[in-house]
Amino acid sequence: MPRFSNLDDPEYARFAWRRYWRVMGWMAAATALAVVSILGVLFMLHGTVSIHMYIAAALGIGFTMLLTAALMGLVFLSSGTGHDESIDDALDPESP
Rank of each mutant, 00 (worst) to 15 (best):
L7R: 00
A58W: 07
F63W: 15
W26D: 04
V49P: 02
L66P: 05
L59M: 13
T81I: 05
A56F: 14
F76Y: 14
V36I: 15
A30Q: 15
P93C: 12
L77Q: 03
S86H: 13
A69E: 05
A90M: 13
N6Y: 13
I51L: 14
T81R: 00
F4W: 09
H83G: 02
L74K: 05
W26A: 03
A13N: 10
S37Q: 09
L74G: 01
M72T: 13
R18K: 11
T81A: 01
M72Q: 10
F76E: 05
H46A: 08
L7P: 01
F43D: 07
D92P: 09
L71R: 09
S50M: 07
E11N: 07
P2W: 07
Y54E: 08
M1H: 13
M65A: 04
M24S: 03
H83D: 11
P2N: 05
D9S: 04
E85I: 12
V75E: 11
A70V: 14
A69K: 09
F15G: 00
G82Q: 04
A90H: 15
S86A: 13
A32D: 04
I38V: 15
I38D: 03
L77C: 06
M1L: 13
L67P: 01
P96I: 00
A30C: 12
R3I: 00
I61M: 10
N6T: 08
A69C: 08
R3D: 00
L77G: 00
E11A: 13
L77N: 01
L71A: 11
P2C: 08
